[in-house]
Nucleic acid binder design. Structure first.
Lengths: 213, 213
DNA sequence: GAAAAATTTTGACAAGTGTCAAGCTTTTCT
DNA sequence: AGAAAAGCTTGACACTTGTCAAAATTTTTC
C-alpha cells in the first residue's frame, strides 16, 4: 500500500538536485526553529522563510518529523568539527586554554540562536522518541569533540585523565547552557563569567589530587 | 478599560477557597505538562486531568501563561527544600556524599517526569520572555540548595571553596540532565553512572590544588 | 426560602495546524 | 516540437487551539 513518490526513485542524475532542495528547505526550517522554538514552528512559517510555498514541503519531506530530523542532521554536520582547529594549533597548556575559551565565547556570540534550538530539541527528546536517536548521536559527537580537547590538555600537562568523557562533556555543557540563558537574557557579563568558570574547572579536573578521606 | 473579574475582589473569607482551586488546577496543569511537554499541552487537556471542564480555567486564570506561571511556582515550592535534610544529618564527608548521591538517585527515579518538565520550560525561556523571571528565580533557588551542600562539604574537609556557586550548580545540573535523558531512554546504568561521576567531580572540586602552570 | 453572588458548564468564535490532492508551470527526454 | 516527467502552487479538508460570553448550576446571604 506504500504510495510511490519522488522520494523512492533513484535517478542518479537528479538525486543531487533533489538533495539540494531538501538541504535548502531544511536550512529554512533551521532558521525558523532557531527563531521561534519548536513549540511555535509551523510548516507555513518555515515555507515563508524559504522562497517557496507551504505545499512544497510535502513534496520533499514525508512529514513534519522527517523535515525536522533532516534539519537536525544538517545542523550537526556544521557543528561538530568546529573546535578541532583549536586543538591542532595549541602548543602549550595556556595556548590551548585561551583558544578553547575564545572559541566558546565566539560560539556564544555568533550562534546563540542555533544553540537554543539545540537545547530546545534535546528537551523535546525527553518527551518524544522520534528525535531520540539523532539527538543521541549528535550529543555523542559533541562529547567526542570535547574529549579530544581534554586529551590535548592531558598531553600538555602530563597528567592522566581521571574524569570520564561523558562527565566532562555534561559539565561543560551545563556551564554553556547556563551562560546561554544569561546571555540571551541580556547579561553582558555572562560570557566572561563562563570563561572564568570553565578555566577554573578544567584546571581542577586536569590536575591529579587524591580525594579526601 | 480593565474588566472586573473575580480575580480582583479580595473577600478575605473566600480568598482561601479561590486559591485552593487555583492550586488544584495548577496541579492538573503540572500533571499534564510533565506528561506531554510544553509544546503539546492544551487547556482542554489540562482540564481533562482535573475534575472540571475547560471553561473553568479562564475563571481562575487570566490566560494560559498565567496558569503555567502559577504551576511553575507551585512546582518550585516543593522542589527547593528537598535536599536540606541531607545536609543537616551528615556528620562526615562520606556521610554527606552518600546521602547526597542517594537523594539524587531517588529524585531521578521518583520525579523524572517532573524534572523533564523543568528542563522543557527552562528551554522555552530561551525563546519566550514570559517565564524568564520565574525560571531565573527557581534556578537561583536550586543553585542555593546545591551551594548549601557544597558549603557543608567544605566544612567537613576544612578546605576552602574555590568554585563559584553558579558554576558548581551548572555542572551538577549538566550531569543530572544527561542522566535524565539516558534514564528516560531506558538506560538502566544511567543512575549509577551519574552517582560515580558526581562523586568524582565533587572530590576534585573540594580538594585544593594549584592549577598547572 | 427568596434574592444575590459565586461557580461551573456549554457552545461557539476566529485563527492556526498538518496533510493532501488537483492543477498549473517548468524542465527533461526522445 | 511534442510527450512525459518533475517541480511547484493553490485551495481545501478535518482538526485543534486559546478565548470568551451566555446560560445553567451551586453556594452564600439576608
Amino acid at each position: 500500500m506504500q504510495k510511490v513518490t519522488r522520494l523512492d526513485r533513484i535517478s542518479p542524475q537528479r538525486a543531487d538536485k533533489f538533495a539540494e532542495r531538501r538541504a535548502e528547505l531544511a536550512e529554512a526550517a533551521l532558521q525558523t526553529l532557531s527563531e521561534l522554538g519548536y513549540a511555535r514552528t509551523s510548516l507555513r512559517e518555515i515555507a515563508q522563510n524559504s522562497e517557496f510555498t507551504h505545499g512544497v514541503l510535502h513534496y520533499y519531506f514525508r512529514d513534519k518529523v522527517d523535515l525536522i530530523l533532516c534539519s537536525v542532521r544538517q545542523y550537526k554536520a556544521r557543528c561538530v568539527t568546529r573546535y578541532d582547529r583549536v586543538t591542532a594549533d595549541a602548543r602549550t597548556y595556556e595556548d590551548l586554554m585561551t583558544g578553547f575559551l575564545a572559541a566558546l565565547a565566539q560560539t556564544m556570540r555568533d550562534e546563540a540562536h542555533m544553540h537554543r534550538l539545540w537545547y530546545d530539541i534535546r528537551s523535546q527528546t525527553l518527551f518524544e522518541t522520534a528525535f531520540r536517536a539523532d539527538v543521541a548521536e549528535l550529543d555523542k559527537s559533541l562529547e567526542d569533540m570535547i574529549w579530544r580537547i581534554m586529551c590535548r590538555f592531558a598531553e600538555l600537562t602530563g597528567e592522566p585523565q581521571s574524569v570520564s568523557p561523558s562527565a566532562i562533556y555534561a559539565m561543560i555543557d551545563g556551564l554553556f547552557q547556563q551562560c546561554l540563558l544569561r546571555h540571551l537574557s541580556g547579561d553582558s557579563q555572562a560570557i566572561d563569567q563562563m570563561q572564568a568558570d570553565v578555566r577554573l574547572v578544567i584546571s581542577k579536573i586536569t590536575s591529579s589530587s587524591a580525594p579526601p578521606a
